[in-house]
């Protein structure tokens, strides 16, 4: 007889496991925070990690941001054109990017570029006993290895999202004004009169900071909890990207409902 209750049990299992992992992640966040003081006092460690988390993501962020802005302008133009309000193109591009696309897409890109790299690196350090070696030398791996990566991610994320937004807006300008021939003055002035610093820009930055915390926490957490084998590390890397994507989108929904 087939087990009819199996799907139900499976769902229950997943839920329970999810709650467990969430609890562990929160406890881990607490550990990270109480070990952060040392990290923030040792700037070179942090700078090194910002290089790997932020600088190395810069290229993909610039390229993607520009293209997203260009596509937005192209699509927006055809739609706005049928309502005869193409002057609103600047507003459309800027608001789409600032409120949603910038923070979300930058965070997704960051998760797959830097988050996965972080998980793989930490997972390998665990698998090759580097973290144990550090602990045996009387150096706390949380303070020395994990906290700098965490903070680097938290610092880099809003900067990357801002770069993404600017590239998108410039990309939109290129398509709308340079290619299609709309009035450049209208592009900027409409944008300026409809974009609000606090409401749109600051809220977008808050979003990206929260995404930064979520993605790097997931990346570092999956790294230290990876099963210390090749398969374990690769599984953890995949989980980082998938979990990050889901968490970013869910958080984005909640934050949007809350903010706008």
């Amino acid at each position: 007889m087939p087990d009819l209750l199996y799907p139900l049990r499976r769902v229950g299992h997943l839920v329970v496991e999810g709650v467990w992992r969430f609890g562990f992640a929160m406890r881990f966040l607490f550990l990270l925070l109480i070990n952060s003081l040392q990290t923030l006092q040792r700037l070179p460690l942090l700078i090194r990690e910002i290089y790997f988390a932020g600088v190395l993501s810069l290229l993909i962020i610039v390229v993607s941001g520009t293209f997203v802005g260009m596509v937005l302008a192209l699509q927006g133009y055809t739609t706005l054109n049928s309502f005869g309000s193409t002057e609103a193109l600047g507003t459309l591009v800027a608001l789409s990017l600032l409120r949603e696309l910038g923070p979300v897409l930058a965070a997704l890109l960051f998760a797959s570029r830097s988050g996965s790299a972080m998980t793989a690196e930490i997972g390998l350090m665990k698998a090759t006993e580097q973290l144990d070696a550090m602990a045996v030398m009387g150096v706390n791996p949380i303070a020395r290895v994990l906290a700098p990566r965490f903070w680097a991610g938290v610092v880099s994320m809003p900067l990357l999202a801002a770069v993404f937004n600017v590239c998108g807006i410039v990309g939109g300008y290129f398509v709308g004004v340079v290619m299609i021939g709309l009035d450049g003055g209208a592009y900027w002035s409409q944008m300026q009169s409809n974009v609000d610093l606090h409401y749109d820009v600051v809220n977008g930055v808050i979003k990206s900071v929260i995404f930064g915390v979520a993605v790097t926490l997931i990346a570092v957490f999956e790294g230290v909890n990876a099963v210390p084998t090749a398969a374990g590390v690769s599984g953890a890397t995949t989980r980082t990207v998938v979990t990050s994507a889901l968490v970013i989108l869910a958080l984005d929904f909640m934050l949007t409902a809350f903010m706008f």
């Binding site: 006993e129 580097q130 144990d132 550090m134």
Partner: peptide, 9 residues
């Protein structure tokens, strides 16, 4: 350690 555990970075 068994395999040295040198810091790879």
């Amino acid at each position: 350690f068994q395999f040295g555990a040198l810091f790879t970075d």
